[in-house]
Design a protein around this nucleic acid. Sequence first.
RNA 1: GGUCCGGUAGCUCAGUUGGUUAGAGCAGGGAACUCAUAAUUCCUUGGUCGGGGGUUCGAGUCCCUCCCGGACUACCA
Length: 701
Amino acid sequence: MPPRRLLVTAALPYANGHIHLGHLVEYLQTDIWVRFQKLRGHNCRYFCADDTHGTAIMIRARQENRSEEELIAEMQAAHERDFAEFGIEFDNFGSTNSDENRALCAEIWQSIRDAGLVKEKDVEQLFDPEAGTFLADRFVRGTCPKCAATDQPGDNCSSCGTTYSPAELVDPQSTLSGATPEVRTAKHLFIELEQLHAFLDEWTQCGEHLQPEIANYLKGHFLGPTDKPEPLRDWDISRPAPYFGFEIPDSPGNYWYVWFDAPIGYIASTRQWCDKHGENLDDWWKSDDCEVHHFIGKDITYFHTLFWPGMLKTAGYSLPSKVHIHGFLTVDGEKMSKSKGTFVNARTYLDHLDPSYLRYFYASKLSSKVDDIDLSLDEFIAKVDKDLRGKFVNLASRSAKFVAKTGLSATYPKDEGLFDAASSAAAEIAQAYESCDYSKATRKIMALADSANAFVEANKPWELRKDPENEQRLQDVCTIALNLFRQLAIYLAPVLPKLAEQTGVLLGDPITHWDQAQTPLVGTPVAKFKHMIQKIEEKDVQKMIEESKETTPPTPASGELASADGNESANTTTLNDPWKDPGDPLAAEPLAEECTFDDFMKVDLRVARIVSAEHIEEARKLLKLQLSLGGGEYRQVFAGIKAAYDPEKLVGRLVVCVANLAPRKMKFGLSEGMVVASGPGGSEIYVLSPDEGAVPGQRVH
RNA sequence: GGUCCGGUAGCUCAGUUGGUUAGAGCAGGGAACUCAUAAUUCCUUGGUCGGGGGUUCGAGUCCCUCCCGGACUACCA
């Protein structure tokens, strides 16, 4: 096969945060693919960059009282250090805040203009008069227009889940300055993606560029059936000043939205590399001889499978040969959590554990599917120890020292076909790597390790060495074992570059090409064996988790927590509190702004008895309850607690309800109140009960 | 509710266009070995392939239906 020209990218990490284990799934997946292609002799390049623009960076720089440039330079240095220590090797790591990127944005923008895809529309957005900036949704908080929950984010209510625009919030507040934002109208520029509908339909559905489940998802959600396509929404790609980014040349005062210039960063990073190496950008981005491969997470599917191909197509650049989409990382089956210590930064990992462990573990879990992968800590420890140390490195460790003096045999001995079996497995393993099915590749490789260990076991070099008569046989057995080991090291080289390097040193022959696994090494010296990998220690994993725990609960701004009856206050810092409850519920939903006693009295909370409770088949979350306030006074209430409570078990119990809530018409009938409950939602809902002695109708003071 | 993806051993998964008796690794049990970083090897327990129905000479695989889990999307709190 002639060498392929391959341009590979991983998504650009945002300059606002540090690299964590979740990010690493992608950068390692991509790095392994790139190393594999390079090992095969292809002209493969791995480009990435920091994604630096947008409001979040601007705001943070302001808060830290420094320039955006200083901030992003610092973050980029940290990112690059973390990547390097994990063995992630980019051919170029750039920044979206670069001259190259600005020029490319302008060029591509012009093409999109020329193609008649741009239109102007007025957009109403909240503006912070004190900070002098428009506010993205998440920088506005206020009272939910539906359920009146206070201090809710600008796009949806964490209490009731309603989605709305920030302009609909009651009493909105800017999180930047605390000022009341005003609604201002600004001109925004939109790309009419719908004009590219036919092209996108064809491109996404042809079966070559996307995993089947992704193509399916796009068809179902955005593109619609071919005979009845749904129009694609216009894409808002401008933001009015002030905005940290690039000003749009033909629209002064407006800046490209970060999602416009971010993917162009792939090309800009390529250009930087081309300029450094005397290469021609067009050979990489405008040539049919070059394949472009993007690796991304499923959260940014939309941008990379619709907007981005649309932009490339319009501007005359190569379309991606393939967009490889992976799922998220969970730890011990759950979302990474700061309080549980499973939200682990790359740096924290590096302080305690060997990067090879994680490289191998991810490889052993990754497939070409979009499924999430789970880092079960027990499995991580067991697998790394068993496979890497017990099966793989052990092969060298148990045979190298017997031939340290003699080196390898001059000719390759008869080995019952083991070497041939492993060399003919090359094609299948390569195919697995090529299709990103690394779990399959590692499985195959470990099967080879098993048979190699069995060979050593059967031929007992430790007995052979006892009798000088067997000297030749001893050398032959170890020559075989070390050659089998070397084949594995070659096959694992994309995953474990450091071990491949160490193997090269041990056997005096650097691993540089996949095909080295086809020819045994003979007649060469063997270096003194040094440990190649340390045993993974459970206590180190524990330490890493401990260190990742965010134990300090956020201190309430007021320093006071009002208790339910309103007449006591407690300073949380001086209390003897043996429970040490974690702070995430409070962090997830910060305290609402202070209210007066009169405010509180507006809400009439009453003890009520649930006299009936029934399922509503069509509702996913709701139960229909009849509450008695005593004396024949009843309320029909729809409560979103279906996932957490059995209706039968609720009947008869006392609860607290908001008895004077304005009735609300719902899909299934009129709801005349609320049952108060805590919890994040889903099955985690905890209905409040009064203590024994309370009777329906009593007011809660 | 809609769309989609899943459900195979205690755990993680493999099962190619339907084809002998459903597999691997780990974990569990038993033995061997002592070269190796207490690593390794051999033997072994364990499955109504989510349930039911259908097509077929034959179904883990194809079709229908139901149950369960997940993702997205919506009504809604």
